[in-house]
Structures are given as C-alpha cells and as structure tokens.
Computed example of a mutant assay.
Amino acid sequence: MTRDLTQSAIDRQNILNNSQAIDSIQTKLGLSGLNYNDEYKFTTKMVMDFYEVSRATISRYIVNHQEELSHNGYQVLKGQRLKEFKSLFGHLIAPHDDSSQSITDDTLSDQVIDNQYLSRIKALAVFNFRAVLNLGMLLTESEKAKQVRSLLLDVVIDTINKRIGGSTKYINQREEDFLIAIAREPIYRKEFTSALSQHLEMGPVKYSIYTDAIYNAIFKENAKEYKAILRLEEKDNPRDTMYADVLKLIASFEIGLADEMKEEATRIGRKLSPSELNLLIDRFSKKRQWIPLIEDARAKMASRDYGLRNIIHQRLQNYIGALSHDDYTRFLGDRSKDLIDRVLENPQLIDVFKRLKDR
C-alpha cells in the first residue's frame, strides 16, 4: 500500500505517535537544535535552512496546518517562557531584515544582539523535532522534505520488523491483555455453542453460520472475509489474530445470546427456528448498551490493522484513525512482549500457549 504523507493526516500522525520510529529518524538525520526543557527546539530559520525553503513558504504551511502542527509541538513562546528562552539563547537570535515589522520569528546569527532588540521581541515561534518532521511531511516544495518522507516510511517499516521479527499476523498477541482474553475465550464459546445445540432447530452448519452472524454484527465481516483481508491461511483461527478488546466483545455477545436463546426457547416451549434466531440476534445487537462498545471495537480494529498491519477493512474504512502513543507502546514498546514471555510470567497459562501453538 503506497502512502502519500502530504495527503493523509492519519498517516502523518501514525508516524509522529510512534516514538521508536521518531527516535530512530532523529539519530539518522543527526538533527539537533536548542536544548530547552530537555527537548530540542528549532527556530524557523533553522527549519528554513534544513528544508531549503523560504520564510514565506514556512509561514503559509503554518497558517494552513496550524492545528496539526501545534498538536505535534509547534508553538509561539510568550511571557515568562519567552523571557527564559531569550535569556538562554538570545545571543543566537538576530533581527529580521525588516525590523519595523512586528517580530514573531527569528533568524540565527553569530552576532552579539543588543538588549534593545531582544526586548522588542514579544513572541517567538519554535518547533520541536516532531513538528519539524510534521512540516516535512506536508512540504511539497522541498526536495529535502521529499527525502525525509521516504526515510520516514522506511524507518517505520524497519522499526516494526525489528520489533516483531517480520510478520504482523500475530502482532495482536503482544498486547498484555491478549493472553487473558484468549484464555477465557473457550469458556464463553462453549456457552454459545451449547445454546445453539440445545435451543436451535438446525444442523451442524449452524455453528459457523451464527459465529459469522456475531462477527458481522460487531465488525461487518464474516470469518471468510476476515481471513481474506488479513491474508490468513485456511488452518489459521481468526480469533488468534484479533485484539483483546474485540475478543472480549465477541465473548460478551456469545454469552448474552446464549442467555437470550435459552429464555426465548423456554418461553415458546420449543427450539427456535433459524428465522426466529435471526430476529433475536437483530434485536440483541441493536440494544443501546452495545453501541459504544461496538464503535470502540470497530475503531480499534480498523485503526490498528491499518497502522500496524498495513491493512484496510473496507467496511470499516470510516473508523480508521491515527494510533495513539499508547497503542504503539502497547504493541511495539516496553509494554509489548512475545507470547512466550507473557507465559513465563504467568505459568498457569501454559496450556493456553500450547493450544495456540498447536492450532
């Protein structure tokens, strides 16, 4: 999948929220600025020189993308923070060519600056490293920005591959909640299949049909479609690739439906027909209690598969958003671990690990 960072705010934010990738790109670029409050700050002149563009070009992008750039670290220093910044780096700030203008920016120089000029600076624009990269993902006039975008995409892929060893099929299993969720899955699944067996008048095909009914209610795909989108093999169990939040919601649906089927079959004094169960599932899935849970599960599946697996669920495309810093920490950072490491921390779950590996 080709990604155009100049056009996609989601792709830009996915990169900027990936702290491991940002650290790696900073090392590769060797770009350092003014160390202020344990973070490198870059003046507009520094950014101009790096991307080899004019001040007017930088200003235009700031006006057009101010909310995004501000979110990622662009800011205008004023008041006490400006006073502190000037006291530290005033000797590097030189006047504009037209000093009669209201001063909201700076240039770099080795000149000694007189106090009279510095006192006239009422606001000063600065970027942190993320904001510098953010601007580079937007700039279409700069060849250097184009090179940075290419390097960013390469580094992101390399970061994921190094962390998980190449394949993203089971990246969901690195989440700390996954092992608990998958350990409980057979218990809830058995309640559902037992209810189908006892309360639905239909042959063995009912188990796959109504599993698909639950999948469609939650994430608008049946098992076959899901496996095709994730490029799974026939022997692969879809649930082994699902995120913990999705597994928990499926479990809630299964045990909830099991109870509903039992109550309805008791009420009518016989097994349900397929058409009756279809109506029951439709009513059940439309209960207001499910709305926030389903919306959350769809957003997480769509966004994580897009950001981590480079996969688009077409029916969930409107749910795709940028991954948070917490998401990257959850699946690629310090909180993520290989499944075997999780089992070593929880020896009582060794049977679950064996079951997953035997599938």
Rank of each mutant, 00 (worst) to 15 (best):
I157C: 07
D158V: 00
T159G: 12
N161V: 05
N161H: 13
K162F: 02
K162D: 15
R163S: 06
G165H: 09
G166M: 06
S167N: 15
S167R: 07
S167P: 11
S167V: 13
S167E: 13
T168E: 07
T168F: 02
K169V: 10
Y170N: 02
Y170I: 03
Y170H: 02
I171G: 08
I171E: 06
N172S: 02
N172E: 03
Q173F: 04
Q173E: 03
Q173Y: 06
R174C: 02
R174K: 09
R174N: 01
R174H: 02
R174F: 01
E175N: 02
E175V: 06
E176S: 15
D177H: 15
F178Y: 15
F178C: 08
L179G: 07
I182C: 08
I182K: 00
A183P: 02
R184E: 12
R184I: 08
R184H: 13
P186A: 08
I187R: 14
I187P: 03
R189D: 13
R189M: 11
K190V: 13
K190Y: 03
K190W: 02
K190M: 12
E191L: 14
F192L: 05
F192W: 06
F192V: 01
F192K: 08
T193C: 10
S194R: 14
S194G: 09
A195I: 00
A195E: 08
L196I: 08
S197R: 14
S197T: 10
Q198I: 05
Q198S: 13
H199L: 01
H199R: 06
L200G: 09
L200W: 02
L200H: 04
L200C: 09
E201V: 12
M202Y: 08
M202Q: 13
G203Y: 00
P204Y: 09
V205Q: 14
V205Y: 05
V205C: 07
S208Q: 15
Y210N: 06
T211C: 09
T211A: 09
T211H: 04
A213M: 08
A213H: 02
I214S: 02
I214F: 01
I214R: 00
I214N: 01
N216A: 10
N216Q: 15
A217Q: 01
A217K: 00
I218M: 09
I218K: 05
I218V: 14
F219Q: 11
F219C: 05
F219V: 09
K220A: 12
E221M: 14
K224M: 12
K224G: 12
E225C: 07
Y226Q: 04
Y226D: 06
K227H: 10
A228F: 08
A228W: 03
I229T: 11
I229G: 03
I229N: 00
I229W: 06
L230T: 08
L230N: 11
R231D: 11
L232M: 10
K235M: 01
K235D: 00
D236R: 05
P238G: 10
P238R: 08
P238I: 11
P238K: 10
P238S: 03
D240V: 12
D240I: 15
T241K: 09
T241P: 09
M242Y: 08
M242R: 01
Y243M: 12
A244D: 15
A244V: 04
A244F: 12
D245K: 15
D245A: 15
D245G: 13
V246D: 04
V246C: 03
L247N: 13
K248Y: 02
K248H: 09
L249P: 04
I250R: 14
I250N: 12
